[in-house]
């Protein structure tokens, strides 16, 4: 690893100290939600931004992670926190099945298939009443961590977000990241230089789904209630995609910026989780598409030259 830049050190110190500076419970809650969405946007970005496979079904992976926690809490003697591991494990076979079905399709057809998958998972959860509580949902009894303080939750979600973003960063500079970008740019070209496109798309999906499920498991432990309208709606899938698009597809920092901007603005307008104000999101999306077609990251690069890719266009 090369020298880590100064701003990263400052950011680390800030993130660790934040709950001691921002002591209001509501502010801490907002930080937790923002970090949760940082993880969600970044995890989605592996498949959607790097590999170019625009999934609109990620709520399914989130929901499976959340329901894993709920089921552990309601059916076993174990702590629902185990879902941070069990959720990703449970989502893997589902993700592979989804990939096996959806990767036969390209472009918009792939996206439509992922919407269908999301809906199928939602309907299964709604109807498998013995396991999921159906429309009633599952209330999770408070566990050891769930005292009055928000601090433990903050640090857990911070670790999840940091792990997710770090994985994206490491990936973006290695063979896996380059292979996913090649697949995004042109699958035939990718095959012609020895890339097993099916296998690499499945790897991207598996990693993306597992990290999304981990975030879902955290959600359940934090909010202590899970039902299909909170953890499996299409609106959640859309929200995750918007975060990555507004922030900047296929960049490591993009979904981080996107999550901060979107979740802060939606908290300012006092929206509930999963009932995001799609109007505000829509307006932001239009603004970004009009003025920053490469997302916030692209816009920042052009305005300030920060982290500028050395690439420039050369005209014929």
């Amino acid at each position: 690893m090369k020298k880590s830049p100064l701003y990263l050190s400052i950011l680390s110190v800030f993130l660790i100290a934040a709950p001691f500076i921002l002591t209001a419970r509501y502010t801490q809650h907002v930080l937790i939600v923002v970090l949760l969405y940082v993880a969600l946007g970044s995890a989605w970005n592996i498949l959607g931004g790097f590999a170019g496979q625009l999934s609109l079904g990620h709520a399914a992976f989130f929901g499976i992670g959340a329901y894993t926690a709920a089921i552990i809490a309601s059916k076993t003697a174990f702590s629902p926190w185990w879902a941070l591991i069990a959720g990703p494990a449970a989502v893997l076979p589902v993700a592979l099945l989804v990939g096996w079905i959806c990767f036969r399709l390209r472009g918009p057809y792939f996206t439509l298939a992922t919407i269908a998958v999301g809906e199928v998972v939602r309907l299964i959860a709604l109807n498998w009443t013995t396991l999921t509580g159906g429309a009633v949902g599952v209330v999770i009894r408070p566990s050891l961590l769930s005292g009055t303080s928000k601090l433990p939750y903050y640090y857990v979600v911070l670790v999840i977000a940091v792990v997710t973003v770090t994985l994206c960063h490491l990936m973006s500079r290695r063979k896996l990241g380059y292979y996913l970008m090649a697949i995004r740019e042109d699958e035939e070209t990718a095959e012609s230089i020895g890339i097993d496109t099916t296998s690499y798309k499945l790897r991207a999906l598996a990693l993306s789904a597992a990290l999304t499920a981990m975030a879902g498991a955290f959600y359940a432990n934090y909010f202590l209630f899970v039902d299909t309208t909170t953890v499996l709606p299409l609106a959640l899938s859309v929200e995750i995609v918007l975060i990555a698009i507004i922030g900047g597809l296929g960049t490591v920092a993009g979904p981080v910026l996107g999550a901060v901007l979107l979740k802060l603005s939606s908290e300012i307008f006092r929206n509930e989780f999963a009932q995001a104000n799609l109007l505000i999101y829509g307006a932001l999306l239009v603004l970004v598409i009009l003025f920053m077609p490469d997302g916030l990251m692209g816009g920042f690069r052009r305005l300030f030259g920060v982290g500028a890719r050395k690439s420039q266009r050369v005209s014929a």
Binding site: T189, S192, K310
Partner: peptide, 27 residues
């Protein structure tokens, strides 16, 4: 499959060129 053949040592170019557009020449 094409990637297997490529890894076996057969390279190709495309008649209608297919660059990885969003990547730099070096990448």
């Amino acid at each position: 499959r094409p990637h297997k053949i490529a890894l076996a040592g057969v390279g190709r170019t495309f008649q209608v060129v297919k660059p990885l557009r969003g990547l730099s020449v070096f990448d």
